[in-house]
Design a binder for these strands. Sequence first.
DNA 1: GTCAATATTGGTAACGTTGTCATTCAATTG
DNA 2: CAATTGAATGACAACGTTACCAATATTGAC
Lengths: 340, 340
Amino acid sequence: MSGRSDIKGDKPARSTLRDVALLAGVSEISVSRVMRDAPNISDKLRDKVMAAANSLSYTPNRVAGALKNQSSNLVAVVLPSMSNEVFPSVLDGIESILNDQGLHAVLGLSEYDRDRELKVIRELLSWSPMGIILTGLHHLDPIPGMIAQLDIPVVQIMDIEGAPIGSAVGISHSAAAIAAADYLHGRGYRKIGYIGAWSEKPQRSKARRRAFEARLQALGCPLVASLISEDRSSAMVGAQTTAALRQQHPEIDCIFYANDDLALGGLFHALAAGIDVPGELGLLGFNGIDIGKATPIPLSSIETPRFEMGREAARLLLSSRESGNVIKDLSFKISDGKTA
Amino acid sequence: MSGRSDIKGDKPARSTLRDVALLAGVSEISVSRVMRDAPNISDKLRDKVMAAANSLSYTPNRVAGALKNQSSNLVAVVLPSMSNEVFPSVLDGIESILNDQGLHAVLGLSEYDRDRELKVIRELLSWSPMGIILTGLHHLDPIPGMIAQLDIPVVQIMDIEGAPIGSAVGISHSAAAIAAADYLHGRGYRKIGYIGAWSEKPQRSKARRRAFEARLQALGCPLVASLISEDRSSAMVGAQTTAALRQQHPEIDCIFYANDDLALGGLFHALAAGIDVPGELGLLGFNGIDIGKATPIPLSSIETPRFEMGREAARLLLSSRESGNVIKDLSFKISDGKTA
DNA sequence: GTCAATATTGGTAACGTTGTCATTCAATTG
DNA sequence: CAATTGAATGACAACGTTACCAATATTGAC
């Protein structure tokens, strides 16, 4: 009955256009057209084809389609990691737009390693995706050329300060750092510390710390100290580094953290140690994650639009044919927490 | 110089095996073999080809390769959602195995909707993935048949109680619920409540609650009440529902939560309201997320191996040719928190 | 120096789909 | 009623790769 399966007489095998066409007694191209809802198809033909297709439970082979078309419904998405809440949210935002269009993300993780990123991008590009989303603005040299060869749209997320390959969606991290410095200074804090983690692998956090430091300097109250853990960010590390930093520099009256996981750890440490927050110690996080809104003292934080960043990136990708390259500043806001 | 680009004289166009072969003065097959590291290639040939390939910055077209080979290096991964920490961890585990093998996940989100899941699976299968990872054991009728047609391995994650299509990796949710009931009962709690969220969309949480209820009944201290919020899980919802449940049933001395986000919310509520934990109120979460280890009172929770589940799923997928279908119980453990 | 065995290369034909260009046939027009 | 149009279908040739089967070099054995 179904072509190839006779030859060897075993597996049901995947049915093809040809099988459907044979069964329906029409040409392959007609089946193709019906499957794709092409115009100028008679109801009679459509019915015949659909019946045959259903009885064979035919699924179009998009690999073949993509080869012929030179384009697919895949979108390459390259993120550094999945292990904090930032990138899953971004990915969620991306998927929320893509899935409605019948598009799908092919995922690659760089683990903050440039060479690995290059390898992953090369592999993903070999699938002729219809677009690619990258994290950050700094990439190895050959990458823009590789993308140009496919002539597909690129959107870079997270950062907008630099020279994007195509479009970019994100926030200004230096502006966020300046806002943080101004905010804390405005609240009366004068002995400010900084805590980061994971050796600042994302260059964005390094940029943020530097801008923060510079701004404090300009405000006349230079950063007292910063402590960058080698470990990955976590609440536990946040608690430990907070204790350590306060021991080394008892005069510190406020800490700005690289992210909310660390800041929550700081808050938990303070709660457990009976430190008065925000009086004795002010705490300011970064990202504005959900949990921080429910803590006994709600966490003050720089809220970043992570989900929206993903959505916007996907939207820009889809519209880039018309709108060309765009740089979109989604901006941040300082949440109304009570820890600073 | 590069074939197609002459015709119209515009885009650099993507170079192909043919372009490389022409430039290197060898056959297309030879280029193909060099690119794939096939055996029996002379150094001279390899060098010529590599030089040509580099100068054209050639990237193999895997769409064509997959069509010819009838199989790709893509793995379809269908998850319900990205919006709590569970599935990102699982995905992280999956990718940690896949990426080292040059494989890539194509993602589909079902949003806990069966029909949507079917649609997504159909689309992903049309890419001839080399395997597919699904969430849970309950799927719409046509799905097993669709997968069988491609003759690729399937791994279902999260749950192991039921009839898997292929392999399954997860934990026994009823066993976890029983362990929770026994643990709380053993700690002396007798007026136990339950809090869930999002209308229990994941059937796993429903199964867990039922088993929990049944066990408490058997232990002679029936569940006092359960409160299932319609909202998605979050610490905020956990705090609110905890307050609400205690108001409705002041006798409750302990609450088992559907997940740690809710439980953390409960803990924060208790801390803010000055409720003595675990004396006046015991709290037990589910999943064992990182943050819970750093709270002023570390959260007691049923720890589930989410990352490991992803890793194991990917491993099973890769080894299924030899090992066949396997059901793997990764088991859970009750964390040594201090809230129950 | 001859012959078999092996290492190295190439030619050809698919894989399943769709764009381009026919072709058929019914409907419309003057 | 012939001529013209347009709708509906089909034939054929790609898309870029790789499996399969030659064909040609190279090596070693006797």
